[in-house]
Structure formats: structure tokens, C-alpha cells
């Protein structure tokens, strides 16, 4: 991948994001810049504020200070729905699925919401619910489901799916929205090695073919370093490092944050916490 960091105006940008929980500063003036068609990694130890930042970016939590911009437009006070309409999608650390729906329903719903968001009135007065879905919809939904190896279980209700498959369903649902920027919260957590490789392939293809920007919170640091164009490191709500993966890997502040002062092991290297559980 080329380095798009400074090539184009960012599709998503956070400036000086501050979030307080009572007396605790969960995020303290955090900046983030996501160029179009790039992969941005967000890592940090437990309690660093990664998921809080995701909630701010996606609109589920309003920051105490700072602004969020999508394509240069201030969306800090916009609802999650408005942000979704501007091309943002996200997954969750604990998969948030609609348990009464099947796998295919998830993808179909996301596909339709993205294309005809105000259908409720037409749904009531037409018999659309009683007719067969349009061919274009069926084809695209099949493609997404097939791409993530979910065809076998596409008509199964999602309640009770293993964690790995639940994550794939979340990702499939996000893809169906055709987002411009996708926030992935621990996308590889709970997946086996083969599934992780598959996810990485699908994500790379999505960035290459559709120009989607990815922002990834990950516990698997190796996975992030292998995929990301740039990496941001949070520690106790503060941004302590940012830059290309190699540059961040060698940063002494990052080493200290992960393993304590004086450590010689860096994240993602032998002896480092490449596979440790790092959640926020």
C-alpha cells in the first residue's frame, strides 16, 4: 500500500477529543487523522481509552471537548445515524447482533438502509414485504455473505453463533452499508488463525477495491502492524505515539507503556505482547 497519510484530506478526523468519567480523564486531547483508502491502527494497554474513542467517533458518546469531522464537516453533535448516512460504519468489541434475525437478514437490512433510508412509509403502502427481493440486492448480499464464508449459515438465526462467526456477521453487516470509513473494534478477537487470515484478506481487498478507510482497535498487535499504514498508541487516555508501524514499534514510550520502563522488548517482537489481550 502507498502512504496516503499526507496525500489527501482526511475522511475522518478527531481534534482534541477529551472525555471525562467523573474525575477521571478517559481521553485527554486526542487527535486522529484517517486519510481515504488507508488502514489506521489504534492500540494501547487496558484502559487506554480506545473503545471510548471509538464511541466518540461513531457518535455513541459525546466528548466533553474536541471535534469530530467527516470529510471536513463537523459531526461532533451529530447522531450515530447521521454519521452512518455520511458513510461511517462500525463493529463492537462484544459483537452487537440482532438476535432475532438471521445472518442474511443482517446483511439485507444494512444493504437496504444504506440505499433507501426512508422506506417506512413506502413499506406500509406497498406490498414490498410480500414480494421477492430485487436481483441486484440478492446478488450483492450473496457476494458479501460468500466473501466471508457465511453461506452455510446464512439462514440461521445469529443467537448462539460462536464468537468468530458473530464477528464475521458484524463485518458483513458493515460491508453491506458500503461505508467510506469503517471502525473495527477487536475484529480478530475470538477468530482462529485461518479466520484471522481470511479477515485480513477481505479487509485488504475492501481497501484496495472500494477505497474504504479502516480504523482498527486490536489486541493482536502483529495483526495491526501487518495491515496498518499508520498506528496510533493510546495510554491512560493520552496519545503517546503515532506514525508508521516500524516507527511506532521502536518508540521507547510505546515500549514503556506496554512493558514498563527499561524494557527492551517492543510490541509485536519476540517477548513483546504481540498476542496478549489488550482491551480498553
Amino acid at each position: 500500500m502507498n502512504d496516503p497519510q499526507n496525500a489527501a484530506p482526511p475522511v475522518l478526523e478527531a481534534r482534541g477529543i477529551t472525555v471525562r468519567f467523573g474525575g477521571l480523564k478517559a481521553l485527554d486531547g486526542v487527535d486522529l487523522r484517517v486519510p481515504p483508502g488507508s488502514v489506521t491502527g489504534l492500540i494501547g494497554p487496558n484502559g487506554a481509552g480506545k473503545s471510548t474513542l471509538f464511541n466518540v467517533l461513531s457518535g455513541l458518546r459525546r466528548p466533553d471537548a474536541g471535534t469530530v469531522l467527516i470529510d471536513g464537516t463537523d459531526v461532533t453533535r451529530a447522531s450515530p445515524q447521521r454519521r452512518a448516512a455520511r458513510g461511517m460504519a462500525r463493529t463492537f468489541q462484544q459483537p452487537e447482533l440482532f438476535q432475532g434475525l438471521t445472518v442474511r437478514d443482517h446483511v439485507t437490512l444494512a444493504y437496504r438502509v444504506a440505499r433507501t433510508p426512508k422506506r417506512i412509509w413506502t413499506d406500509m403502502v406497498t406490498a414490498g414485504g410480500l414480494r421477492r427481493a430485487p436481483a441486484a440486492e440478492t446478488e450483492r448480499v450473496d457476494e458479501i455473505i460468500g466473501g466471508l464464508n457465511l453461506t452455510e449459515i446464512q439462514h440461521q438465526a445469529v443467537l448462539g453463533l460462536p464468537l468468530g462467526q458473530a464477528r464475521l456477521v458484524e463485518i458483513a453487516r458493515s460491508f453491506a452499508r458500503e461505508p467510506r470509513v469503517l471502525l473495527l473494534d477487536e475484529a480478530s478477537s475470538g477468530l482462529d488463525a485461518a479466520e484471522t487470515r481470511q479477515i485480513a484478506t477481505v479487509l485488504r481487498r475492501m481497501v484496495a477495491r472500494r477505497g474504504v478507510s479502516l480504523v482498527m482497535v486490536e489486541h493482536d498487535v502483529e495483526f495491526v502492524f501487518g495491515l496498518a499504514d499508520s498506528v496510533y498508541v493510546l495510554d491512560f487516555g493520552t496519545l503517546i505515539a503515532q506514525g508508521a508501524p516500524d516507527q511506532v514499534r521502536d518508540d521507547p514510550r510505546v515500549r514503556a507503556a506496554y512493558l514498563g520502563q527499561g524494557s527492551s522488548s517492543a510490541p509485536g517482537t519476540a517477548g513483546g505482547p504481540a498476542n496478549e489481550q489488550v482491551t480498553s
Binding site: A89, F98, E170
Partner: peptide, 13 residues
Amino acid sequence: RWSEPAARTLGLN
């Protein structure tokens, strides 16, 4: 009914 956060971030009003 099943997940309000997911529904909101999906763009459902």
C-alpha cells in the same frame, strides 16, 4: 429490539 447501539450505528432512526 435486539441492539440499540448497533441499530443506531447502522443508520436506523
